[in-house]
């Protein structure tokens, strides 16, 4: 040991560092599949394909709940009054400012399609309840209006809108 030259030292150190680096790369690569397996598997992804919903049976003032990717989606056929209420509010007074127009599809203004998951901690709000005739979350009292916007309570954001499109006047495709 005492007689090793510094050149040999460098060579040895290089070898040690290289081996350690390769080991670290290998360990990191080995961890990847162990983590990746936690993501949704191929069958779950395939089952999350878009769904079509027929709106014809939903009368004015009524709503239905469908499931897409395990999430409840509220589809609400709003009355004239509900739409007007939603549009009468000054947007700047809202906790999460957004116009009603931005939350529905043009030409289909009576249809509200929202993901029925409270933006506070994930409970399912009840439709047609609460002070704003929209949604009321029983868990911690968040109140949403007829546009699904947060008005009162601890939830920070409006109910999210799922990706969807009108296939015809009475049919939407979610996803």
């Amino acid at each position: 040991m005492t007689t090793t030259s510094s050149a040999e030292h460098t060579r040895r150190d290089f070898l040690f560092v290289a081996t350690g680096a390769v080991a670290a790369v290998g360990a990191a690569a080995a961890v990847w599949p162990l983590i990746s397996q936690m993501n949704p598997d191929a069958s779950t992804i395939a089952a999350g394909a878009p769904i079509e919903v027929d709106l014809a049976p939903i009368a004015e003032g009524q709503d239905i709940k469908v499931f897409w990717r395990g999430k409840p989606i509220y589809i609400m056929n709003r009355t004239k009054k509900q739409v007007e209420e939603a549009r009468a509010v000054p947007v700047s007074s809202l906790p999460d400012p957004q116009t009603d127009q931005a939350r529905v599809k043009e030409g289909h203004d009576q249809w509200l399609v929202v993901i029925g998951i409270c933006t506070h901690l994930g409970c399912i709000p009840i439709a047609h309840e609460g002070a704003y005739d929209g949604f009321f979350c029983p868990c911690h009292g968040s109140v949403y209006d007829t546009s699904g916007r947060i008005r009162q309570g601890p939830a920070p954001l409006n109910l999210p809108i799922p990706p969807y499109a009108f296939v015809s006047d009475t049919k939407i495709k979610i996803g």
Partner: peptide, 24 residues
């Protein structure tokens, strides 16, 4: 995490691990 210990589902759950789970 992916296996189902039930006589009707165990075999297929192993197959779905192999086929569908990432790196299963």
């Amino acid at each position: 995490m992916h296996y189902t210990p039930h006589v009707d589902m165990a075999f297929n759950s192993v197959e779905s691990i192999v086929r569908d789970v990432n790196y299963g």
